[in-house]
Amino acid sequence: MQRYTSLLLVAFMLVLLIATISDNLAGHADRTRREKPLQSITVYTTLPPEHAGMLAEGYEKSKNVRVNFVPVSSVEVLQKLHQDSVGGRTRADLVLADRSTLEKAAANGGLQPYISENTDSIGASFKDAEGRWTGIWYDPVVFCANRDYVRAVPRVPNTWMELASMPEVRVGITDFLAADASANLFFSMMSQFGDQATYHILRGIQPKVVQYSKYLSTPVRMAGMGEVDLSVAVQSEVLRYIHQGYPLQVIYPEDGTAYTLTGVGLVEGAKNEAQAKDFVEWLLSDEAQLVLQSREFFFVPLNPVTIAYKSFPGKDVVLFSRPQDFSQSERHDLLDRWVKEVRLQ
């Protein structure tokens, strides 16, 4: 018995010793990480600061690399890349932005190709053919209906023309002049349907509009509160309100819809190229999607090998395929005509 007790005591002392050594080693590692300067990368981005901030925080916690996001407009991205190249000093490593900005940056020679197993998995319609930028996620425009309305009517509209012709439906929508995503819907419809058909659809919807909102979230909230029957809204806002318990149902237009694509491109001459490529791979991972979804931001991921992609609702939505090809003056004229002939009627 005494021998058995002695063995137990020795075993206990060994466990205690191992635990003490492990704690000391862990503490030393923590101190080393704290004392060693963090690696960092710089990213020009058109994302809202809230989205950029949570991505930076999530990546630093995961990889111990700091992401310095520089919030800029689409025009400023191109200006900064040009200034950097003329000055011979590259300040940014990546551009994280909307599709239009990335396409212009690539055309101006500001981005270099980067192809990996993950980027190669992205569909061809969501990336540059030469690998100079790659789509990460997109946010489609959908119909979002109040569930009481869905139960009360024999049929819920599921095409743009049907929404325009459906009688006695109260509609919420964000003003095309108030938000980029809403303006993108307008110009995408112009490209897909043509101006005559688009104005016909919008004239049909106009008498049903209860309110042209300033924010993307307002039409969703109105539908959730029963202030309108159906809203035209971005899916990320609809899913956020559904996650919060609002009685809403997503309806995908069968004749297609607009979407906002967010992608990333590697800057030509990036000084921290290896770290920048690692960040691209992380953005295409489940971990990045988890960071966003944990804060109630739900975008459709584009990497088909991820769990997030396989489990995400609505990834098979029909998307408009015709590119927008309007000059700034043409955009101004089209919107001006909409205001005069539709909005103010």
Rank of each mutant, 00 (worst) to 15 (best):
R337Y: 10
S85Y: 05
E60F: 10
S188M: 07
V305E: 15
D195Q: 11
S311E: 13
S125G: 13
G109Q: 03
S191Y: 05
I251N: 03
M190H: 03
D93K: 06
V156L: 04
R240I: 08
V65R: 03
L319F: 06
L177E: 11
S236F: 03
E35Q: 14
Q293W: 12
G245R: 04
A26D: 12
A29P: 10
W282V: 01
Q275A: 14
I21Q: 13
M190A: 07
G131V: 01
I242K: 11
E50C: 13
L230V: 07
Q112H: 13
K61W: 12
Q2W: 14
S327I: 01
R295P: 07
S6K: 12
A178S: 09
R240Y: 10
D148A: 15
S6A: 14
T198A: 03
H332W: 13
R343L: 12
L16S: 14
D316S: 08
T218A: 10
E57T: 14
L177S: 15
D120R: 13
F279I: 02
R33T: 09
E35N: 13
L25K: 12
T90Q: 08
R34C: 11
S165R: 12
A276L: 04
S121E: 08
T257W: 01
H28Q: 14
A106T: 01
K214S: 13
L111D: 00
T174C: 03
V156M: 03
L177A: 14
M166I: 15
Y241G: 02
E227D: 11
S85H: 07
A52H: 04
I122K: 02
G269F: 03
V280Q: 00
Q324W: 08
A233V: 09
E268V: 09
P207F: 06
D286Q: 04
Q235G: 07
G263P: 00
F297C: 07
E287F: 08
A29Q: 15
S327K: 02
L230P: 00
S121P: 06
L185G: 01
E57C: 13
Y241I: 05
V15W: 11
L239M: 15
I201L: 11
A11W: 10
A19S: 14
V142N: 02
L248K: 00
E281G: 01
L185K: 01
K127F: 05
L284N: 00
V280D: 00
M166D: 12
R322Q: 13
V209Y: 02
V291A: 03
Y246R: 08
V150K: 03
I201K: 04
W282G: 00
